[in-house]
Design a protein around this nucleic acid. Structure first.
Lengths: 337, 337
DNA sequence: CACCGTTGCTCAATCGATGAAGCAAGAATT
DNA sequence: AATTCTTGCTTCATCGATTGAGCAACGGTG
């Protein structure tokens, strides 16, 4: 038996006929302003009952076409494959729903063309706000939104044309670097400069983290090794390659490392496991990002956990206030365990 | 300067006026069937150009209201906080888009009420299909869909009223158990029964995995210890508690373990790290689920990776074929590294 | 009894896009 | 020259929900 009949959907007109009343009354009852429209509670009850019996669900397309506001809020996100973005998406949905907004999310696989296409699609769905998370070209998206009269925000990576909410990368990296340097001193007896690995030098976050990295070295009076700053990309393979290239050319790799994301850390740890260089003494790592299994890796790994609820609270504050200033930068400090 | 003017959106009527033509022609040109409607390519070009200049985006609400099919496909998912669901969601989006469908996803936090509410909301948005992933009460959702004439599928956890696509939990668990038992024999010299930990005994997947677990023991002639089957829930804390209770009452814990998910594994590893029981010899683990960092934990951990692309390919096959039989069960074998 | 205010509803226009039906002008055919 | 065909549009009803305007019935007031 196949019950999958593509049966016609119940509309307010069907309900009106069943209830012996008008579609107008049905609409008023079902969207809750029947008091304002002076519908008797008798009729309201009857309509509500019939609607339930019929399994009625409003047609949002029709409803939204008529209303002036859609109450839809869109988010684009690069990937769902790590805890940071997963947590962003989950928190976004919860907070949006708590505010009576309908969240729609789409992932763009770090593909600039997909980002633009996704933004256009969101606009077609009449989103009231679009939040661009980790976008490669956030300003382009802001332009598209502006042209359509839609407001937008940047999250995680900043742009210049809309308010951006990001981690306080400089202060976070400075603190993480400091902690890692101190760990190195405690475990190996002497302070030594760290290796910076992962991320793209062209992206704002990586640049700021490198700045914090430098500053912490300066704070503690440790000289930086310029060729020990490897912004080789985020991908695990890139990080692994960079390390093995360094090991090949220099014969060693610093014991202390600042790893720019859990994504890169995956490659770093894989390489370390495969190399004999750390057989005697395990590496001492600071990772700018958080993952529960990393805490279990058994090594000395310090993590800076980006404050996702904090960032999204800031974002929804702006959404609720109505609008933000062009290009304002809001920095949220990451958390340390 | 604040450019966030909530300006009125451009419609096909605006474009028609600018082009000195009718809205009908504009519509035909912009949705691509202007050839069929015999619009000259001159006019088509002109309209296209003007639409681009104005940054026009169709109003999907209006468009969908008129069309008979929405081409929207919905998915509900419990959480975004592990690789399995992350990968499901990402693959779902990619595959949906490749088929010209618009995916909308919502997470329900394993809350039965939220599941129902989310399903209703999806129906309001006129989804053509609803995929319930890991739902606590998939049949309830199928009923709601059926009442609205919408088709539905179950993923990950099966139901009886719609086609279900799940991992081959029995065969997968049998193989994983076998591999883990052999690992135990190789590392500790003798075969010994495993501990089963994590999951809910009431859920189909856990029950099937326990069945496979038993069968593998039987295959290899290893007796099962009934009190070593702990379906204590998925949460990390639950797993950790169950282990420490066992250690307290029995003084030891089997060295070989079958852990029912990476979620539970988190608690298991945390407890192991905190306990002296495994200081001498590390545990030997089989985990029914996959995570890249788990592979780096440095222990002997075998993983059964659920075949997400395989499962979603099966799902979209059904979506494209139009409809599936009531309650059919499709089992996809998990992968071993 | 005429008038007014209130209650409880209905009517009809509207949102923007779509597409069947129709129409006018020119080209082709007889 | 009369007819038919083709091309290239426009007109208008429609999808389902919403809402301002309006109307009938009734109770109360002078």
């Amino acid at each position: 038996m196949n019950q999958q009949r593509p049966q016609k959907k119940t509309t307010i007109y069907d309900l009106a006929e069943l209830a012996g009343t008008s579609a107008s009354a049905v609409s008023a009852v079902l969207n809750g302003n029947w008091k304002k429209r002076r519908i008797s509670s008798q009729l309201a009850e009857k309509i509500t009952r019939i609607a339930e019996e019929q399994g009625y669900a409003v047609n949002m397309q029709a409803s939204l076409l008529r209303r002036e506001k859609s109450r839809i809020i869109g988010m684009i996100v690069p990937k769902y494959d790590n805890r940071y973005f997963g947590s962003i998406v989950e928190t976004f949905e919860i907070m949006a729903r708590a505010r009576g907004l309908f969240p729609i999310i789409t992932c763009t696989l770090r593909d600039p063309d997909l980002e633009i296409e996704a933004a256009r699609t969101m606009l077609s769905y009449q989103v009231e706000w679009l939040i661009s998370t980790g976008a490669t070209d956030p300003d382009r998206i802001t332009d598209i939104c502006l042209a359509a009269g839609t407001r937008s925000l940047n999250l995680d990576l900043p742009g210049t044309k809309a308010t951006s909410i990001i981690s306080d990368n400089f202060a976070g990296a400075r603190e993480l670097t400091k902690r890692t340097l101190i760990n190195v001193e405690q475990k190996s007896g002497a302070m030594a400069p760290l290796l910076f690995i992962g991320g793209r030098g062209s992206d704002h976050n990586t640049a700021e983290r490198i700045r914090g990295f430098r500053m912490a070295h300066q704070d503690l009076g440790v000289p930086i090794e310029e060729h020990h700053i490897l912004a080789c990309g985020y991908a695990p393979e890139k990080a692994a390659q960079a390390l093995s290239a360094m090991a090949a050319s220099e014969g060693s790799v610093p014991r202390g490392m600042f790893v720019n994301s859990t994504i890169s850390l995956e490659g770093v740890m894989r390489w370390i496991k495969s190399s004999p260089l750390f057989d005697a003494a395990p590496p001492i790592i600071g990772c700018f990002d958080w993952d529960p299994f990393v805490a279990l890796l058994g090594h000395d790994i310090e993590m800076a956990r980006q404050d996702v609820p904090g960032m999204l609270t800031a974002a929804f504050d702006i959404v609720e206030k109505g609008s933000g200033d062009t290009g304002k930068l809001i920095e949220i400090p990451p958390l340390f365990a």
